[in-house]
C-alpha cells in the first residue's frame, strides 16, 4: 500500500519542483546525447574498419622458376589455413601487366627494363573474421616456412594502424562514457539531495508519525528514476532528430554521409539507461543523507 502513495508523493514533488527537475532532465538528456553521439561515431568507425579488410590481401612472393608441382603444394599448404578465404596465383607477366595498367600514362617508368623484375606471387584473401593483425602475422610466419616462398607482405603497418585507431577510439569512447555517466549520476544525486532538503520539515513530521526509512526514501527513488528516464527519453529524441534532420540532409550534398549507419535499435534502451543512472544517483544521495 506504500507504493501507490509513494508514487503520488513523487508525482506531487515532481510537479511542485518542476523547474529544478526540468533542468536536471535537460542536463541528463544532454549528457546521454553526447554519449550516444560518441557511441554512434564509434559504431560507424567500427563498421568502416570492418569493411576495410575486405579490400585487404596478403601477397606471398615466390622464388623464381618454381615447378608447377611445387607451386601447387605451396598453394595447397596455404589454403589449409583456416583464415584463408582464397589464393590466387599471379605470374610475373600478369603482375607486370597489372602494374602497367595501374601506372596508365606513366608506364614510361618501366621502359628500358630488359627483364621483368617482378616475382611470381600469390594473392591471399582472408576470411572476414580473420583479418586481425595477429592472424595475418601468424599466417605470414607459416607461409615463410614453406619451401619456395621468398617473402610475405601482409601490410603490417596498415593493420597495426587500423588496430591502434580502433583501440584508441574505443578507449576514448569508454572514458567519455564513464565520465559522463558519473556526471549524470551526480546530477541526479544533487537533484534528489536538493529535493530532500526542501522537504526536511515534512520528512521530520513523517518520521515522528512513525514513517520508516523505506516510506521516506521510496518517493525520492521514484523521482530520481523518473528524472533519469526523462533525460534518456530526451536524448533518444535528440539522437533521432540529429540523424533525420542533420545527417540525412547533409548526405544529399556530402555523399560521404550516405555510408553512415544509424543503429536505431541500439539507442532504444536510452530511457532505461537514464532511469538506472537516475536511480543510482538517488540511492547514493539517500545513503549519504542523515535522517
Amino acid at each position: 500500500m506504500i507504493a501507490p502513495y509513494a508514487l503520488k508523493l513523487a508525482v506531487q514533488s515532481l510537479l511542485k519542483e518542476k523547474w529544478i527537475n526540468l533542468l536536471s532532465v535537460m542536463t541528463i538528456g544532454a549528457g546521454l546525447l553526447i554519449i550516444s553521439v560518441s557511441f554512434f561515431a564509434l559504431y560507424n568507425i567500427d563498421i568502416a574498419t570492418k569493411k576495410l579488410p575486405k579490400k585487404f590481401s596478403m601477397n606471398v612472393y615466390l622464388d623464381n622458376n618454381l615447378q608447377q608441382d611445387r607451386l601447387d603444394s605451396i598453394m595447397d599448404a596455404i589454403r589449409k589455413n583456416r583464415a584463408v578465404l582464397s589464393v590466387r596465383y599471379i605470374s610475373k607477366d600478369e603482375a607486370m601487366k597489372e602494374l602497367k595498367s595501374y601506372l596508365k600514362n606513366s608506364d614510361y617508368i618501366l621502359e628500358g627494363l630488359e627483364e621483368n623484375p617482378l616475382p611470381d606471387s600469390l594473392e591471399i584473401k582472408l576470411r572476414k573474421d580473420a583479418t586481425g593483425r595477429e592472424t595475418a602475422q601468424q599466417l605470414a610466419r607459416e607461409a615463410l616456412k614453406i619451401k619456395g616462398v621468398a617473402e610475405v607482405d601482409y601490410g603490417e603497418n596498415f593493420l597495426t594502424t587500423l588496430t591502434a585507431i580502433k583501440k584508441g577510439f574505443n578507449a576514448i569512447g569508454l572514458v567519455f562514457a564513464v565520465i559522463l555517466s558519473t556526471g549524470i549520476i551526480f546530477v541526479c544525486y544533487s537533484t534528489v539531495k536538493i529535493l530532500f532538503y526542501r522537504r526536511t520539515e515534512e520528512i521530520e513530521t513523517f518520521k515522528l508519525l512513525g514513517a520508516t526509512k523505506g516510506f521516506i526514501r521510496t518517493p525520492f527513488l521514484i523521482e530520481g528514476a523518473f528524472i533519469g528516464a526523462c533525460g534518456g527519453l530526451l536524448s533518444l529524441a535528440g539522437c533521432f532528430s540529429l540523424y533525420y534532420t542533420v545527417l540525412l540532409r547533409l548526405s544529399v550534398t556530402m555523399p560521404v554521409f550516405k555510408a553512415v549507419l544509424f543503429p536505431a535499435n541500439l539507442f532504444l534502451p536510452l530511457p532505461v539507461i537514464g532511469m538506472l543512472l537516475g536511480l543510482a544517483g538517488a540511492t547514493i544521495a539517500l545513503g549519504r543523507i542523515r535522517y
Binding site: 501507490p4 515534512e202 513530521t205 515522528l208
Partner: peptide, 24 residues
C-alpha cells in the same frame, strides 16, 4: 502542531494511516 502547510486537512490526517500502510 507540525501540520504540513502544502497539504489539505484530509491529507494531513490521512498521512498517519498511509504511513502505517493502510489501504486507500
Amino acid at each position: 502542531f507540525r501540520l504540513l502547510e502544502n497539504r489539505t486537512v484530509f491529507e494531513n490526517i490521512s498521512i498517519a494511516l498511509r504511513i502505517r500502510g493502510i489501504g486507500e
